[in-house]
């Protein structure tokens, strides 16, 4: 190709710096760099950075005398509670299959246009409150919740009573998240509930529920602040907000799944 030299992308320059290219590709980039001094200078900086970083942290790649004790102590004292029984997983899989088949019925609601400025103060503050709750509690390593997932029935009854609402804890296992637990949090100046979920690698998300004094409905809305994202909606007397540390597509699926499961609750 005659235009070979004009087709070097920035991704290829990174791959060149990181040594992910084949020999002919390397040669092509090097020839191109000779004709593009500004890019060549930037690539040189990146190479220098990479060398400095490798050298800077190399000395930390060592074992420590206490490692063995650390590993064995944690391994034998903090075994996690067992994973969900197979039967429950199968039931949940069936549920999401059925829910998937029904998606069409909900679709108009989810694709309603979202204008952030149209949201009411109450809705706006719901997403903000959800994000601060997430920021405060998701970073807690040891005590993120007041009542753990080992007492699910108690958790649902307790938070449901404070919220004056028949609270059913959403099962998000089909999406890879299991319940960590929940706590009571203030929402709009009154008792609200926060549920926390986590995937196997420790990625966390929270579901916040608060009473909505205005008793109205909204479509699905989305708020993003400093890299933290929240999907939220109001359904009559309760406002819901799903906040997480996960990709937006997945977070939306989770919010939709919560919506379906909560919808089941309030319709009954």
């Amino acid at each position: 190709m005659t235009d070979d030299f004009d087709t070097v992308s920035e991704d290829e320059l990174h791959a060149y710096v990181d040594g992910h290219l084949s020999e002919p590709e390397r040669e092509r980039i090097e020839t191109w760099l000779k004709m593009h001094p500004a890019e060549a200078e930037e690539v040189r900086q990146w190479q220098a950075q990479a060398a400095a970083l490798k050298q800077h942290f190399a000395a930390y790649a060592r074992s420590d005398a206490s490692d063995r004790q650390l590993v064995i102590a944690h391994s034998r004292s903090t075994e996690a509670p067992s994973v969900a029984p197979l039967l429950r997983r199968a039931a949940a899989a069936l549920l999401i299959f059925v829910a998937g088949a029904l998606t069409g019925a909900f679709a108009p609601r989810f694709v309603a246009p979202v204008d952030p400025r149209a949201s009411t103060t109450a809705v706006q503050s719901l997403s903000e409150q959800a994000q601060s709750a997430f920021l405060v509690y998701a970073s807690e390593v040891r005590h993120p919740v007041e009542v753990g997932s080992d007492q699910q029935a108690h958790l649902a009854t307790w938070l449901g009573k404070r919220l004056d609402y028949d609270l059913k804890l959403p099962d998000l296992s089909t999406l890879g998240f299991s319940l960590v637990g929940g706590r009571l949090v203030p929402v709009n100046g009154t008792a609200g509930a926060m549920l926390m979920y986590e995937d196997a690698t420790g990625r966390r998300l929270t579901v916040l529920l608060g009473r909505n004094p205005q008793n109205r409905e909204t479509s699905f809305r989305f708020a993003s602040h400093a890299g933290l994202e929240t999907f939220y909606w109001i359904d009559r007397e309760i406002g819901y907000a799903v906040t997480g540390d996960v990709a937006r597509d997945l977070l939306k699926k989770i919010a939709e799944e919560c919506y379906r499961q909560f919808e089941g609750t309030s319709a009954s």
Partner: peptide
């Protein structure tokens, strides 16, 4: 250490470097 613990122990240098 059992097999899993040994595997984790072998990873400690890499994990220490990444954490730092």
């Amino acid at each position: 250490p059992d097999e899993f613990e040994s595997d984790v122990l072998a990873l400690m240098p890499a994990l220490r470097r990444y954490s730092r």
